[in-house]
Each structure stands twice: as C-alpha cells, then as structure tokens.
Computed example of a mutant assay.
Amino acid sequence: MLVWLAEYLTPYASVFNVFSYLTMRAILSVLTALLISLWLGPALIKYLQRLQVGQAIRDDGPQSHLAKAGTPTMGGILIIASIVLSTLLWANLSNHYVQVVLAVVLGFGLVGFVDDYRKVVQKNPRGLPARWKYFWQSLIATLAAVYLYGNATVGAETQLLVPFFKDVMPQLGLFYILLAYFVIVGTSNAVNLTDGLDGLAIVPTIMVAGALGVFAYASGHANFAQYLNIPYLPLSGELLIVCTAIFGAGLGFLWFNTYPAMVFMGDVGSLTLGAALGVIAVMVRQELVLLIMGGVFVMETVSVMLQVGSYKLRGKRVFRMAPIHHHYELKGWPEPRVIVRFWILSLVFVLIGLATLKLR
C-alpha cells in the first residue's frame, strides 16, 4: 500500500525512492510487525482474560502443565493481525504471490479461530470436528495450489528442486498441485503438533520464515539466482516482505509467549503459521528444503505417527507421551530445557537448509 504511495510521491521528492528497495521494505516490515505485536499484545491478553478464554490442560499430561490451566489462548489473532497489517503496508499488493499468502493466512486463520472458539468459548472439547477441519484445510490448500499452477508463467515455477543436486529439477506438471496441497496442509498440522510448550513452536517458525525469506530474495534476483544456480522466479522476491512480517510478528508474540507464557497462540496461530510457511516454500520451490529446515516440526509429527501406529499394531507405545517434547518432560527434563534444546536443533536444521544454496 505504501509502495504505491511512495511511487506516486517520488517524482516530487526523491527521498521516497528509498521505499522502492526491497531490503529497506523488508526491514520496515520486521519492525512494523514487531511493534504492532508489542502494542496490541497487552490489550488482547486482557481482553481474552475478561472473556475467560483459557487453555484446557490434559489430565494425562505432565503434571507441571496443570498450573497453566486458564492461561489465555487464541493469541494467534495477534500474530495474524501483525502479519497482515505489515504486509499490506510494505508489500506490492499487485503481486499474486503476496495475494495467495494473504488468502491462505486468512483462510487457515478462520479455520483455527472456529476450532479455538468452539473449544474455549463454547466449552466443546472437540472443537471443530476433525473431518471438517481437514476438509476446510484441504479446500483452501487445493484452491491455492490450483491458482498457483494456473498462473505459472515460467517452467521453473512448476519444477521440483532437489537439494544438493544442481541438475535434478524434474517438471512436475499436475503433480505440482498434489505436492503443494500436501506441503501446505502437512506443514500446517506439523506446526500445530509442535505448539505444546511455551515458545516451542514460534521460534522454529521465526527461523524457518527468515530462511525462506533468503530463498525468496535470491530466487527473485536474476544475478543471485544465476550465481547460486537456482531457478530465477521473477515475482518471488516480494515474498521477502511476507517472511519478514512473519519474523517480526513472531518475535512480538514471543515477548508474551516465552516461559512462563502469558498467552498461547492456539490453533488460530499454529495452523496459520504452518500453512504460511508451506505455501511460501511451494512458491520459492523449496518444498524439500522445508523438510530439512522444519526438522523439529518433522520430529514432532513423526513421533505422533510412530506412537499411534505402534499402539494400534502392537499395543505398545514407543514414547512415554507424544508429541516427543512431552516424552522428554516425562523423563524429567524441565520445560525450559526442552524448549531451548529444540530451538538449538531448529537452528542447526535451518543452517543445513541454507547450506543447500551453495552445496549443489
């Protein structure tokens, strides 16, 4: 929005030309999303407390979590507001990549909001029934995938980039839609599973968003793309603004979500953030690298799959509790130790993912 205003004013005052630089707008996007989060956070938390929108705690979980009962949830509203407002201010809104990300963020945010609302306001422990939650996630992801496929203008937009191999880039064709669907829905639910401890999900999300911003900027810059031997995607650079908005919004939310948390993000936040990371990874053609950088999300998801599968097939559990972060809590690790060690693992995974830019 402000990009258009700056373009209009530049002929009258050259100082406004600074807003045409993508890197400057990325910095402003981080700061804007961060300040919005810090400004709106206290008021939202007080409002949620007045509504008694408190988190329900499972009785069969770690006993240390019982003290968290009643902590306000649905704090993901703060994250979504910060991301959307910052993106609207600093991104080029005519870019269809930006439009798709905003649509996915708002769509998955609505699904998560309905789920949280039914749980904590209507006191329905099931929330939105799983089949309906999955249906709406699937519908939004499929629509986004079909739109992106239909609007692809260069072959590179529908190729599969294989990490560490510079010449392995098969053309996906219609399989692009299927891959995009699974990446968006899968990442959304993986982040949701990870969101079980104070700050556990938001910091890996911040790291992955920052790294995806690097990929978006490099892919959208012809010289960098040629130097790094990655496909040049002319419109992808603008996604840097969205990634930095996620980064800033995440930092602002972490201010209130760090241990001991004053607010939880709820499904409205976790489902949305995961979907945003997934659709951005699809756009910059880094779906496989997302698997690496989101290693913590993968660990959490696989631990649940193993636990459920083992119990159904053998009647035995692999872990003391799933997702795996609860396993370590039940082994006696204090919650802050689990959180920080998972953050460290996430940093390692993100660095490995970034290394694929050169190791090709």
Rank of each mutant, 00 (worst) to 15 (best):
A249N: 07
I202D: 03
T205Q: 05
G250C: 13
L273I: 13
V242T: 04
V191Q: 01
G248V: 00
L271P: 05
Y217T: 13
F264G: 05
D198R: 04
Q159A: 14
C243R: 00
Y176P: 09
V185A: 12
L200C: 03
T158S: 10
L235P: 00
H221T: 15
L239I: 01
A152Q: 02
G186Q: 07
V191N: 04
V191E: 08
L233V: 03
V263F: 09
N189H: 13
L251N: 11
L271V: 10
F165Q: 13
I241W: 05
V154Y: 13
I230A: 00
F256M: 04
V168E: 11
D198F: 01
L172Q: 12
V154Q: 12
G266W: 04
L233F: 14
G274C: 06
Y181V: 12
L212W: 03
V183N: 01
I230P: 03
K166T: 13
A275G: 15
G274S: 02
L161W: 08
F224Q: 08
A222E: 14
D167G: 06
G196M: 10
A275D: 00
G213V: 02
Q159L: 10
A156H: 09
A156N: 11
V168C: 12
A261M: 09
V183G: 05
V162Q: 13
G269Y: 08
L161M: 15
G210N: 08
V242D: 01
L178Q: 10
G199F: 04
L161C: 06
F164G: 01
A225D: 14
A225Y: 12
F165K: 13
A249C: 05
S270D: 06
